[in-house]
Amino acid sequence: MAKESPQEKEFLQLVKQHERIIYKLVNVYAVDEEEKQDLIQEILYQAWKGYAGFEGRSAFSTWLYRLSLNTIFTFRRKESRNATNSGEAVSEPWVDEQANSSLEAKMLLKAIRELPELDRALISLHLDGYVHAEIAEVVGLTETNVRVRVHRIKKHLITTLNG
C-alpha cells in the first residue's frame, strides 16, 4: 500500500475527530441506507477535494459543517422522505446503535426529520452551538430571520416532543 502523504494523514485525522457532524447531518436528511451511504461518500469526496483550499480561517468543524450542508443541498435528487410519511416502520439503525441515546434523543431526531429541509439545517446548526450570525452566514439568511425561525422551530419541536 502506498504511503499516506502528510496532508492525507492530517485530513483523515480531522475527519475521524469530526465524523459525528457528517453522521448527524446525513441522518437528519436521509432515511434509507443506500442514500445515507451515497451522501457520506459524497461529503467525504467533496471534503477531500476541497481540503487543499481550507485555509484555517474558521475551525475545521465549521468548514466541514458548511461543506456537508452545501453538499447535501446540492447533491440529493429525490425529495427527502421521512419515515412517518413514507409509511415505513421507524427503524433507525444508526440511532439504535447509540446505546446511550435516550428515547427522547431518538424522538427528537424523528421530529427534526419531519421538518421542512431548510428548517432542519437551521435547527441542526443551532443545536450544535452555532450563533445566529454564523447560521445566517452558512445558510444565506439574515440574522433576524434566523433568530425568529429558530425560535419558532424550537417551540414547535418542544410541543411535538411533549405531545
Binding site: Y23, Q98, N100, L108, L109
Partner: peptide
Amino acid sequence: IWGELGKEPVEGGL
C-alpha cells in the same frame, strides 16, 4: 438531548 446523538464512536470510522 441533541448532544446525546452520535456520542458513540462510529464503528470502523468513516
